[in-house]
């Protein structure tokens, strides 16, 4: 068996191409994880506790700072990146453009607000772009980076439209049984816009299943019929927020 494999020149090729494919997938997952983590640490900033800094106590010092480190480091990152640019720009107008007597306040104020607006814009841009990336990643996750997918070209745009309608309506319950509940179902939308679905795999969690049903019920109200005049049929998988496939 193994000899035939080894002697088969196509085997090497097969393995190599498979390897290439998997490396790409690994890289994508890695990238995706990194993005997720970056987003997460930004949110963490809220929890930084400046009041309860470690108190001078035997042993507590080291450990307390250790403890505080995860949130602290994230603020540090924040604090560093923002002023990194702003002080330079703010400092120069203040130092060089000192003379103006009438407008100093308003001008520097304008400058400042412009700078701030720019900065804010940049931050926002960064934010939206990263959010977009996340969405893109999510959207393409099934097909790993090939938007539109293959084969069902006609349906794929409509599928993402349906997906976004469903996501607007889909909230997971406050508690769910397992760690990663998921519901797989086949959604059918007739050419007249009538929605029908068949659950292929339940989450075995009444609350989560109900949330999925409810989402489809809600989406029903403002879902447009398929544009090509044909029945649409597509499989969807519903997952709670923050549960990643691994």
């Amino acid at each position: 068996m193994s000899r035939t494999l080894k002697n088969n020149p196509r085997f090497g090729l097969m393995v190599a191409s498979s390897l290439l494919l998997h490396l790409t997938i690994y890289a994508l997952i890695y990238q995706y994880n990194k993005l997720q983590r970056a987003n997460y640490s930004q949110e963490q900033t809220y929890y930084v506790d400046l009041v309860n800094l470690p108190v001078a106590r035997p042993r507590s010092g080291a450990s307390a700072s250790e403890k505080a480190s995860p949130p602290a480091s994230s603020t540090a990152r924040q604090v560093v990146t923002l002023p990194d640019k702003s002080p330079k720009k703010i400092a120069t107008p203040l130092a060089t453009k000192k003379p103006p007597k009438v407008k100093p306040a308003s001008e520097t104020g304008e400058e400042l607000s412009k700078q701030m607006a720019k900065l804010q814009k940049r931050v926002e841009e960064k934010h939206t772009s990263s959010a977009l990336d996340t969405i893109r990643n999510k959207a393409g996750s099934g097909r790993t980076g090939m938007p539109g997918g293959k084969g069902d070209q006609a349906g794929s745009d409509y599928a993402s439209y349906v997906k976004s309608r469903l996501e607007d309506a889909f909230y997971s319950p406050m508690v769910y049984k397992g760690k990663k509940p998921e519901v797989k179902l086949l959604l059918r939308i007739s050419r007249y816009g009538k929605i029908d679905f068949r659950i292929e795999q339940s989450s075995r969690d009444i609350l989560f299943d109900a949330a999925v049903r409810r989402a489809i019920d809600m989406a029903r109200e403002n879902l447009k019929a398929p544009p090509d005049g044909e029945d649409f049929e597509h499989p969807f998988v519903f997952r709670p927020e923050g549960v990643k496939k691994k």
Binding site: H22, I25, Y26, K138, S141, G142, R143, T144, A159, S160, K163, L166, E167, D168, F170, Y171, S172, P173, M174, K184, L207, A210, A211, R214, A215, H234, P235, F236, V237, F238, R239, P240, E241, K245, K246
Partner: peptide, 21 residues
Amino acid sequence: PTASFADPSYTEVTAQGNRQV
């Protein structure tokens, strides 16, 4: 890694958050 991947033909719908039922 392939084994742990979900069936690629499914489009994922992710919850917007948690909400009471």
